[in-house]
Simulated assay, not measured.
Amino acid sequence: MRLHGLDIARFLAFCGMVLVNFRIAAGVTPGTDTASLLTNALEGRAAALFVVLAGIGLSLGRPDRTTVFRRALFLFVVGLLNLTIFEADILHFYALYFLVAMPFLTASSRALLLAAAGTLLIGLISLLALDYEAHWTWETLEYANFWTLEGFLRHSFFNGWHPVFPWAAFLFLGMWAGRLELSSRRVQAHLVMWGGAAAALATVPAMLVQDPELAELFGTSAIPPGPFYIIAASGSALAVTGLVLALTPMLDKAGLAEWLAAPGRQALSLYAAHILLGMGTLEAMGQLDGALSPAQIFGYSMGFCALSMVAVWFWNLFARRGPLEALMRWSTDRAR
C-alpha cells in the first residue's frame, strides 16, 4: 500500500531539514523575525518526522531482515562518506536505527511501543549517568575523536547529532503507526488530535522547574535529547503525518499532490543534493561566514526546495527513481 500523503510529508520533512541545515552551515545567527522563529520551530522536529516516516515505511513495505540489513549497510557507507563533508549527517544514524529495529520487524504493536519506551528510558539514564558534553566544542559545533572507537560509539549511541538512544524511539513509533489504518479519516483525525496534544503537553514540565540544568533536561530542545523532546517531536510528527494524509485528497484535486509527492519519493537523493549542491553553492559564493541575514538564508532554502521539485519533475521524464534510490535498490538486488 502506498499513501501519497506519506511522500508529501517526507518532502515537507526534507524542506524543514534544508531550512535548519542551511542556517547552521551558513553560520546565521537566529533573530526574532518570522523566518528565524519558523526555523527554530523546525529544529529537531523535521528530522524526527523523517525518522517516524521511515518507521511507517518499514511497516507498510514489510521488508525481510536481510533486505533491511543490506539497506542499512548501504546507508551506513553513504553516511560515512557524507560525514567527511557534513558532520551533522543523519544517514549513518538511519543505518543504526534499522539495525536496532531488525529484531522487531514482526513484533506486535504493543512490543513496538515498549521498544520505543525502552529506547527513551536508556537515553534518559545515559543523560543522567554520562557526560553529554564530552568531545563537543559547542562554539564551533565540532566533535573531537569521532574516528576513534570510543568517540564513534559515544557519538552514535549517546551524544551525537541524532544518537540511537533515544532517537530510535522515533523509528519504533513510526513502525507502530504504520500498523494503523492510515487511510481512515478517523485514524488521521486521532493522529492530529493526540499528536498535537502530546506536543503541547510536553512543553509544560520545563515551565514548572526553576533549576537551569533541570529545565534543560525537561525541555523540548533536541540538544540534549531529553524525554520530553522525544515526546514533543513524536507528537508533532504524528500530527503532521495525520494532517497531510487528511489534506492529500484536496491537494490531489488542486493538482498539487503529485508535485509534492514526487520529491518525497526521492528524499535520499535530495538529501545528498542539499549538501553537495546547496551547501556547495553557499561555499562557492563565500556565504558560510554568517554574512547572510535570517531572511536571506530562509529565501535561499525555500528556493532550493522549489528547485528540487522542478529537478525531480525533469528527472522523472527519464527515470522512475532518484539516483541514490536506484543505486540502493540495485545494490540490494545484486547482493540478493
Results as ranks from 00 to 15, higher is better:
E216C: 07
V204L: 07
A129F: 13
P249N: 10
A206C: 03
A117T: 03
L327H: 13
A169I: 03
A306H: 08
T66F: 11
L182Q: 08
A237I: 06
L180D: 08
R110W: 05
F172L: 08
A233Y: 07
L58A: 01
R321K: 15
T220Y: 05
Q266H: 10
A26P: 01
G44V: 06
F93I: 06
A95L: 05
V20H: 08
L214F: 10
L288H: 06
P249S: 07
H4C: 03
A54D: 00
L324A: 09
D333Y: 12
F170I: 05
T66S: 14
Q287C: 10
F69R: 11
L268D: 04
T84R: 14
L80D: 05
P163W: 03
L3H: 03
S234L: 08
V100W: 06
F76G: 07
T140N: 08
A198C: 07
L96G: 01
L247P: 03
M102R: 12
F314H: 10
F104S: 05
L243W: 11
G196V: 05
L49S: 09
Y300I: 13
R186A: 11
M279H: 05
L201S: 00
A144Q: 12
T39D: 14
L245V: 06
T34L: 15
L99W: 09
L113D: 05
R10H: 08
H190L: 15
Q287R: 12
F304P: 04
V164Q: 07
V51A: 10
L173V: 14
R185A: 12
